[in-house]
Design a protein around this nucleic acid. Structure first.
Length: 554
RNA sequence: UGGGGCGUGGCCAAGCGGUAAGGCGCGGGGCUUUGGACCCCGUAUACGAAGGUUCGAAUCCUUCCGCCCCAGCCA
């Protein structure tokens, strides 16, 4: 569910980009602010993209402008329809809408081609017959300029002829490229006659077999921005060096508008890798179950994990936007998730590692129900009846035969409160032949119905529980970081840092009956355990599939 | 050693010459039928370093140091 739009921000701009936009608006440089989110459909979106989406759509919303969703589909070798579909779904899920402003760089291939011919006609672009290797060798190094291609000074006529024949499919892949004629001696490598078009006899998801020459990012991106009337083209830091080139094309072409590029630092998260290339590898090698595996930092993975879209937006706002490279602690993301879930997730009781408890003085066959708060943070959420009986399940972790100093929970001879029910006292520990605890025999105090004692005594601990005969068996999956290192790959090998215990499956859990009626995707808090989400993609029996969102405590 | 950026507490991040916001985390206390949440309090004489300008500098100048990005017919 998309949340309603947050109220427009007022007051001072929250970051340097909003400050720029704000100044532009105040100075009257634009009548409408237009931004764009330009993903390449070569993989699924991840939290890093969420930051960019929140920035671009957020600014558009705050300034009463609009944000386009534009697929940067200039490389048919890597792009697929599946990715296009997932990207749209993820952006919508995050709570943003592009309306009719859905575009593709490929929508502009005709225009881009015409402008390329225009540049050729002005002597500002030429066809180079050198191989990729030769171009690399003559590009120079970081400290020395490059050398002109022997084809650099062909006549306009010859260039035009060659370029048209490239388009016509006369040459094989890699035979020739179209290059912008700028400056082979530039200290900025991006200006050393960058490649504008390459020959690629490949079928494109949108244009099919219409083209066999495709524009590169540098040539396509800025012009696409100009065509769409983008006012502020926001991208990450690594494109800072490309800005002079971005501007060069804009200045030398009869484009309909004058967009400006601004760069900000991409998101880095501890215990996480945000590289589409690597995430693709995890998926293709089967190290995870798919792009939407709950352990993946993809938006679809986080969604399946149970992270609410509001939490991602809140997170994006909390971390800010700046130019300095930084690594945000995963705890900041978790905080946002807990903050949202604490006030929205319904509470349920579930026992992950059941320990049978028999209340020896509770009548056999008797059942009663206690009203339990659905959400203490939101009284309006009401209550639900939870069945109680003589035989219960308690969490094994909540009992210790020989409790250490600060352990407040159940122990032999000790009294604790069962949430919403009674105070009980452990009288006897039953073990099997192997010495393993199999059952606890306790007594309850009938006078403490509801959980409070008339004499005012109050146990240190309140435990969650489930009535054995009423419980629903469930599989619960607990998740940890995908990587065991805060900075995965620091040692040179990302795969070596994968956390072998990133997923733990508990098949014998017992949950209160109401938990069996939850809808797929619904998020709940199992009291004292953490937040969980009904896994929508699991087996037919929805109730036996849960994914852990947050562990409350180690 | 070319070019482009960046350096404020453990992690993010405000600050735009007038004497260091906020969030996360952490520590302490309160409250509590979730050891949760919530509420208090604490957590940078200090802003990469050194000089300089100024009544006054994290904010201006100089030099130095450190880190990141760029040599795809990827984006």
């Amino acid at each position: 569910m998309a949340e309603p739009d947050p109220p427009p921000t007022t007051g001072e701009p929250a970051d340097f980009i909003r400050e720029i936009v704000s100044d532009d608006v105040r100075a009257g440089r634009h009548q409408t602010v237009v931004t764009r989110f330009p993903p390449e459909p070569n993989g699924y979106l991840h939290v890093g993209h969420a930051k960019s989406i929140c920035l671009n759509f957020g600014i558009a919303r705050e300034f009463g402008g609009r944000c386009h969703l534009r697929f940067d589909d200039t490389n048919p070798l890597k792009e697929e329809q599946e990715y296009i579909d997932s990207i749209k779904e993820d952006v919508r899920w995050l709570g943003f809408e592009w309306g009719e402003h859905l575009y593709n760089a490929s929508d502009y291939f005709d225009q881009l081609y015409q402008w390329a011919e225009l540049l050729v006609g002005q002597g500002l672009a030429y066809v180079d017959d050198q191989s990729a290797d030769q171009i690399r060798e003559t590009r120079g190094t970081l400290t020395e300029g490059g050398r002109d291609s022997p084809y650099r000074n062909r006549s306009v006529e010859e260039n035009l002829d060659l370029f048209r024949r490239m388009r016509g499919g006369e040459f094989p892949d890699g035979a020739r490229v179209l290059r912008a004629k700028i400056d082979m001696a530039s200290p900025n490598i991006n200006l050393r006659d960058p490649v504008m078009y390459r020959i690629l006899h490949a079928r494109h998801p949108m244009t099919g077999d219409k083209w066999c020459v495709y524009p590169g990012y540098d040539y396509a991106h800025g012009q696409s921005d100009a065509i769409e009337g983008i006012t502020h083209s926001l991208c990450t830091l690594e494109f800072e060096d490309h800005r002079p080139l971005y501007d060069w094309f804009i200045e030398h072409l009869p484009v309909p508008s004058r967009p400006r590029q601004y760069e900000f630092a991409r998101l880095n998260l501890t215990y996480t890798v945000l590289s589409k290339r690597f995430l693709l590898r995890l998926v293709s090698e089967g190290r995870v179950r798919g792009w939407d595996d709950p352990r993946m930092p993809t938006i679809s993975g986080l969604r399946r994990r149970g992270f609410p879209p509001e939490a991602l937006r809140q997170f994006a706002e909390a971390i800010g936007v700046a130019k300095r490279e930084s690594v945000v602690e995963y705890a900041a993301l978790e905080h946002a998730v807990r903050d949202v879930l604490n006030r929205t997730a319904a509470r349920k009781m579930a026992v992950l590692r059941p320990l049978r408890v028999v209340l020896t003085n509770y009548p056999e066959g008797r059942t009663e129900e206690f009203p339990a708060l659905n959400n203490p943070e939101a009284p309006s959420a009401g209550t639900r009846p939870v069945p109680f009986s003589r035989t219960l399940y308690l969490e094994r972790d909540d009992f210790m035969e020989d409790p250490p100093r600060k352990f407040y929970r159940l122990a032999p001879g000790r009294e604790v409160r069962l949430r919403y029910a009674y105070l009980i006292t452990c009288q006897e520990v039953v073990k099997d032949a192997a010495g393993r605890i199999v059952e606890l025999r306790c007594t309850y105090d009938p006078a403490t119905r509801g959980g409070s004692a008339p004499d005012g005594r109050s146990p240190r601990a309140t435990l969650h529980w489930v009535s054995a005969p009423h419980a629903v068996r469930a599989e619960v999956r607990l998740y940890e970081h995908l990587f065991r290192q805060a900075d995965p790959g620091a040692g040179g090998d990302l795969l070596a840092d994968l956390n072998p215990r990133s997923e733990e499956v508990l098949a014998e859990c017992q949950v209160e009956p109401g938990a069996g009626r939850l809808a797929p995707g619904e998020r709940v808090q199992f009291e004292r355990l953490g937040y969980f989400c009904v896994d929508p993609d699991r087996t037919a029996t929805l109730r036996d599939a849960w994914a852990k969102v947050q562990a409350r405590e180690g």
